[in-house]
């Protein structure tokens, strides 16, 4: 329990520290909390002792040494554990063959063993099985147990930390997944390049998606898709669905309002196929209401005190997602240009 708590607190602290260099907020600087990494470097002697307790011979440990150079520590350790525990090997084989019995077979091995090394590997495979079955909630539970009970005994720790973050991302809980991917990269610099590259990629995807309300909406719908598959059709699911409808309605209204204001296509709906050579109003008397409206807005912007315009500009710069920030920057720039022509 203690280790798990440290794991979570540490990851939260990393988030805070990572936000500081941006200078994106006007909040006073907060000193970063010292992060305690619960994971220790792989301890070969400890691993050997644990493997011997499971019956490993010197020859098997020597074979582990040579195969780890070729396959990597995690895979070599898993192969060794499979050779030491036939029931575990059989359960993993079922998973590899897509046998539905694999989950229960792994759970049985888990229930029967008290050896942390074997438990770590069983939990890892069980979590992978859940992830492969699009069941990140259960994967998260199993990996949480791994972090709570089984870390620092197997070279699988790095992969377990990666898949913990992956499970959160698949839920999807992007706000929680991001700091955990970050922690994985920070705490496991020697992890397989395949996992490190995947972590970078997922972080990039999450960061892009966090800037978008549409992605937020899609994330929620993904969770509801899974809920419905689990026959959760009750009030909580229905309330989530109602929220999506309200959010969609709100987005539609906002887009329409922006288009009516003449501030260009809403949220990147695309440039005009026939743009004017410059943004000046055509010469002559305006007879359409919209033209009058645009002039009035420009008038108001021009009539404002500098301090009020600066206050609005600061709001645009601080706290808005980049795409809306760019949209509003362009909008006020356009208003300013129109105002100077009066």
């Amino acid at each position: 329990m203690m280790l798990r708590a440290v794991f979570c607190v540490g990851l939260l602290a990393i988030v805070g520290a990572a936000q500081e260099p941006d200078g994106a907020t006007s909040l006073p600087a907060v000193p970063a909390v010292v992060v305690q990494n619960p994971f220790q470097p792989f301890d070969r002697a400890k691993f050997d002792a644990a493997a011997k307790a499971l019956g490993a011979s010197d020859a098997q440990l020597a074979a582990f040494t040579s195969s780890s150079a070729e396959l990597g520590l995690a895979r070599a350790a898993d192969d060794l554990l499979r050779s030491l525990a036939p029931s575990f090997d059989a359960a993993v084989r079922k998973h590899e063959q897509g046998d539905p019995e694999a989950a229960v077979a792994l759970a049985q091995v888990l229930a029967e063993t008290k050896a942390p090394l074997l438990r770590a590997h069983v939990r890892y495979h069980l979590a992978r099985l859940f992830l492969d079955s699009d069941d990140p909630e259960n994967a998260l539970t199993v990996l949480g147990e791994y972090v709570q009970h089984d870390i620092n005994v197997s070279p699988l720790d790095a992969e377990a930390a990666f898949f913990y973050a992956q499970a959160l991302a698949d839920m999807p809980l992007p706000d929680m997944a991001l700091p955990r991917f970050r922690a994985f990269l920070q705490w496991f610099p020697d992890a397989s390049e395949r996992f490190r590259a995947a972590a970078h990629q997922r972080m990039g995807e999450i960061e892009r998606q966090q800037e978008s309300r549409l992605h937020d909406l899609a994330n929620g719908m993904k969770k509801t898709t899974r809920d419905l598959r689990k026959q959760r059709t009750g009030k909580p699911t229905q309330l989530d669905q109602e929220k999506y409808l309200e959010e969609l309605q709100q987005l539609i209204e906002e887009f329409q309002e922006r288009e009516n204001q003449g501030s260009g296509p809403a949220s990147g709906l695309g440039p005009s196929s026939n743009p004017a050579s410059e943004s000046a109003l055509p010469e002559g008397e305006g007879t359409v209401g919209n033209l009058e409206k645009r002039t009035t807005l420009a008038d108001r912007w021009g009539d404002m005190k500098d301090a009020d315009r600066e206050r609005i500009a600061a709001k645009v710069q601080n706290g808005l997602p980049p795409q809306y920030k760019k949209m509003l920057e362009d909008y006020y720039k356009k208003l300013g240009k129109a105002g100077t022509r009066q």
Partner: peptide
């Protein structure tokens, strides 16, 4: 059905994101 709506929403989000990047 919910998954199809999610998929469409995701595609729209990706499309608008790309267009915003292009304009930016």
């Amino acid at each position: 059905k919910q998954g199809r709506v999610e998929d469409l929403m995701r595609r729209l989000a990706e499309k608008l994101g790309k267009e915003n990047d292009t304009e930016g």
